[in-house]
Every structure is written in C-alpha cells, then in structure tokens.
Amino acid sequence: MKHTLSVLVENTPGALSRITGLFSGRAFNIESLNVAATLDPTLSHLTLVTRGDEHIIEQIIKQLRRLIDVLKVVDVSEGEFVEREMSLIKVRAEDESRAEILRISDIFRCKIVDVSPKSYTLEVTGPESKLKAVIELLRPIGIKEISRTGNIAMMREKKTI
C-alpha cells in the first residue's frame, strides 16, 4: 500500500541525510521525497511517499520519530487529504503537433511556461493520476525532458501537522 507521510524536522545540516539513511539502511523504500522550509525557518517540512504493508509503515513511522531531529510524523493518507504534484515537461513541438500539445494543455489546465521553435515546456499540477495521464498523452509526441517535484500533501479540514 502507498502511504504519504508528512514529517516535521529540525532544519539542521544532516537531518535529511539521517532520514534518507534510515530508509536505505533499513531497506524501506522511498517513492518520492519533497523537502522545503516552513513558516518557521528553523523547521523543514518533508513529504515522503513510501510503500509497505501495515507492519512496515508502522516501523517506518516509529523509526522516523526516533530520530532526534524529527518533531512530528503523520501518515496523512490515513484520513482525508489533498495531494499535489507539479511537473515541468519539455515536449517536442513541431508543425502539426504544436496544436495538439496546446489542446492537451488546455484540457488538463496546464501552463505553457516556455516556448521555442522546436519545443514547448508545460507546467502541470495535480494529483499523481493527472500527471500520469498528461505524460501518457505527450509521450507519443516526444517528451524531451521531465522534472517532477514529488508529492506534497496536507490533511483536510482543520487538522494541522
């Protein structure tokens, strides 16, 4: 099962490598990892997507909490939550495919953030399923490069981490 964990951690050098080291050292997997500052500059917020059965997820959460730098770990996928990912996709755009790309972009409410005689760069935001769909449609046209943020997530309603 896929789980999305929200982790609040001290913004210190080494904190991130403690977390990734934990995953590699204990043979847990990371599907995606996103790290950024929070409103409090001394803290970082980390969104981590991982897979495993109930037992493994329990161990992952406990092991994360055990790290001295980690303040809080929440499995946001346990309840109602929103999840978003952003991707920049550079796609080959020549002749008739230029119009086709614009159509796809429109349907999925993407933004064209860069244009050149031979390519478009699209910005697409949404849940993973949407990104997948866009990528599948653009693939036959010719994706030159792709860059993804990995998931960020938040619990719904009034809950905060």
Partner: peptide, 14 residues
C-alpha cells in the same frame, strides 16, 4: 566521521 557514524550513533554533531 559524522557521516560515517550516522547510522551507528544515537545522534551526532559537527
């Protein structure tokens, strides 16, 4: 050494 001992210390500091 902080990198080397990260997985075998409870915590470490540079």
């Amino acid at each position: 050494i902080v990198g080397i001992t990260r997985p075998c210390t409870k915590h470490n500091y540079l």
